[in-house]
């Protein structure tokens, strides 16, 4: 089992399947939130369904709407299980706080390069740990 220490984390511990891309993320810019699919042309996850997945992405992008949208997505049950980033912006953190979505960010490695797409990962968000573990 391999694990990576994050600088920041919030939300409940989560275990699930990682959907990984070295790309940015914005709920407004990138998603068809009704269908639960990445639709932005050229996005590395274009065409893929994200509901229930642990998204492992490079960075949070602009678009303040995400702060509302994560909660709205959660209310319909078509939402990622958790969000993991190399770098976040305030909007994504505010949205995760408002929507009660598990989030983790800030690693000593490029997290999109060390977690394989489809891997089973566990996010341990307890304040003294903040670990992403690759289970299998």
């Amino acid at each position: 089992m391999t694990e990576f220490l994050a600088r920041s984390a919030m939300g409940a511990p989560v275990r699930g399947t990682a959907m990984v891309a070295s790309d940015g993320f914005s709920a407004r810019y990138d998603l068809d939130r009704i269908k639960g699919v990445f639709v932005r042309p050229g996005h590395k996850l274009e065409g893929r369904a994200y509901s229930g997945m642990i998204l492992v992405m490079d960075r949070a992008k602009g678009g303040v709407a995400t702060a509302w949208m994560l909660r709205e997505m959660a209310s319909r049950g078509i939402v990622p299980a958790a969000l993991v980033f190399n770098t976040v912006n305030p909007i994504m953190v505010q949205g995760a706080a408002f929507g009660d979505i598990t989030m983790m960010s800030g690693f000593d490695v490029d997290i999109t390069q060390v977690v394989q797409d489809g891997a089973v990962v566990e996010l341990d968000t307890t304040p003294d740990r903040k670990l992403l573990r690759i289970i299998g």
Binding site: V64, A67, W68, P90, Q94
Partner: peptide, 8 residues
Amino acid sequence: SNFEGGPS
């Protein structure tokens, strides 16, 4: 200012 989403 930071980016302040609606709730914030």
